[in-house]
């Protein structure tokens, strides 16, 4: 009987954060379901659609750039030993600890008018705060690949590059993709630095704020719901792809 109390204790404490995460999402979806007309109206609002498009395009671009530059860096961090490696590793994690408004200020000081109010500015702000996810999961993915596999591929005649593309990369891909999902999601949710660097072209996450300030909760809610749905759909789909790949290899 004693064990049961322990179980109850674990269940109670374990559920708290889960409920806390699920509750607001459920509540906003339910509220919106009762106000379906507003959602439909929002879907016909040119400004909203434009903003959503901006968000998706810039987030996707950010993800792509983080992959192009993050995967090689992750590989180096996983496979090479060199002086100052821990410093490099530290630098990769720095963006996570800097307040996002500060990121915006720093970027503005560094690149000044070149990034003000354009796509480049949005993407740069997003990249700064979200690239760490891709780099770190690429590194973890490569670390999990048995080095002997690479060695054997080499002895069988594969060059370094060929070994990378036929052995290391495919095996690390699930991990890299889940890092990319995180980068995409993080980019989509970035507000602080974008607010400072590039208020225009308007992205959906900025528009939510603007509608809230100008027209109130009821007007901003449908956009928020759309963002949630897009994020969740992205998240679930990519998780599913990654899971399938993992499963196929196991």
């Amino acid at each position: 009987m004693r064990r049961d109390y322990v179980d109850y204790f674990l269940i109670f404490f374990g559920s708290f954060l889960i409920v806390y995460i699920v509750l607001p999402i459920a509540v906003i979806l339910v509220f919106q379901a009762f106000d379906f007309g507003m959602l439909l109206k929002t879907l016909h609002d040119e400004m909203v659609l434009e903003a959503l498009k901006n968000t998706l395009v810039t987030s996707a671009a950010t993800m792509l750039i983080s992959l192009i530059f993050g995967v090689p860096l992750g590989y180096v961090l996983a496979r090479k030993d060199f002086r100052g490696k821990s410093v490099i590793q530290g630098i990769v994690d720095v963006p996570i600890v800097i307040p996002h408004s500060v990121v915006g200020i720093m970027l503005l000081i560094t690149f000044s008018s070149a990034i003000v109010d354009n796509y480049v500015g949005i993407i740069m702000a997003m990249l700064f705060v979200s690239a760490s996810f891709t780099i770190n999961s690429a590194r973890d993915g490569f670390l999990a690949v048995d080095e002997n596999l690479e060695h054997v591929a080499r002895t069988l005649g594969a060059s370094k590059l060929r070994t990378f593309f036929t052995i290391s990369l495919p095996l690390a891909l699930p991990s890299i993709l889940s890092g990319a999902i995180m980068t995409f999601a993080r980019a989509m949710s970035e507000v602080g630095s974008i607010l400072i660097v590039a208020y225009y072209p308007k992205t959906a996450q900025i528009l939510v704020m603007e509608y809230f300030e100008n027209y109130g909760l009821r007007a901003s809610r449908p956009i928020a719901v759309l963002l949630i749905l897009i994020s969740l759909a992205m998240f679930v789909t990519l998780r599913w792809i990654v899971g399938r790949r993992r499963h196929a290899q196991a």
Binding site: D146, N148, L149, V152, A153, L171, Q249
Partner: peptide, 8 residues
């Protein structure tokens, strides 16, 4: 020693 067969 672990044969290192390519798992994928």
């Amino acid at each position: 020693q672990n044969y290192a067969l390519f798992p994928h």
